[in-house]
């Protein structure tokens, strides 16, 4: 028996993601899925951003990692509720793990939930977690051609953070060229070039989050 179908391969994941999105919407929560390579600076970006949101948005962070609770500890040190999601070797977060974890958060007391994905530019781009905003995090240490090499993430992103801008004098990274590659895939996403380490140029990014 032959069956012609047109079935999205990620239907199972996407159905759970839709449940997460509905639940968050019901509580008026916006969630942000941070995707970037290993060591791009996702946790450092959160460490720089969360204090600027204090008093304006009630935040929490889900920290996806293959192993260790280091990143959740770094967030908890700021006084922001953090939950470590361990994938036990899995290279990306899936909607099921996020759906189960998010229900353990005090949803009625939150406005903005960040999900830091496992450091990886490839696999996480395939998986909707039910977030309202997908953010690609790329650092100047990784090379300006990364959007051309990992197009799916940059196509999907609602915003791109170009971080470690303070390293520009030490690396050969052409910001204009990088933006050109991003614009081949995505004309609309705002691009925030900043340094999470020095705190330079964080304002536009924070404003975007406040209005998300």
């Amino acid at each position: 028996m032959n069956v012609e179908v047109m079935r999205n391969v990620f239907a199972r994941n996407d159905a759970l993601a839709a449940d997460t999105r509905a639940l968050l919407t019901q509580y008026g929560i916006v969630s942000v899925n941070l995707i970037g390579g290993a060591g791009a600076g996702k946790t450092t970006l959160l460490e720089a951003t969360l204090p600027k949101l204090a008093g304006r948005k009630r935040t929490a962070v889900l920290e996806g990692d293959i192993a260790t609770t280091h990143d959740a500890e770094r967030i908890a040190a700021l006084g922001v509720p953090a939950m470590q999601l361990l994938t036990d070797g899995g290279c990306h977060l899936g909607a099921a793990l996020v759906y189960n974890s998010i229900q353990k958060l005090p949803l009625a007391e939150l406005d903005l939930v960040f999900i830091e994905n496992v450091g990886n530019l490839v696999c996480p781009a395939n998986f909707d977690l039910g977030e309202q905003r997908t953010v690609a995090v790329l650092s100047t240490a990784e090379g300006d051609d990364k959007p051309a090499k990992y197009p799916l993430l940059f196509k999907r992103a609602n915003a791109v953070v170009l971080t470690k801008l303070d390293l520009l004098p030490h690396v050969s990274f052409d910001v204009e060229q990088c933006i050109r590659y991003i614009r081949q895939l995505n004309e609309a996403a705002p691009i925030f070039a900043l340094s999470a380490k020095t705190g330079d140029s964080l304002d536009d990014w924070v404003t975007w989050l406040l209005s998300a």
């Binding site: 028996m1 032959n2 069956v3 012609e4 179908v5 047109m6 079935r7 999205n8 391969v9 990620f10 395939n126 197009p151 799916l152 196509k155 999907r156 050109r180 590659y181 081949q184 895939l185 004309e187």
Partner: peptide, 24 residues
Amino acid sequence: SLNIAVEGGDELLLTSVTLEVDDE
């Protein structure tokens, strides 16, 4: 030119399945 727009090419679909069913 690098000034291009890349459209589509991000689909991932199961398009056809052949099944063994009892009544066959």
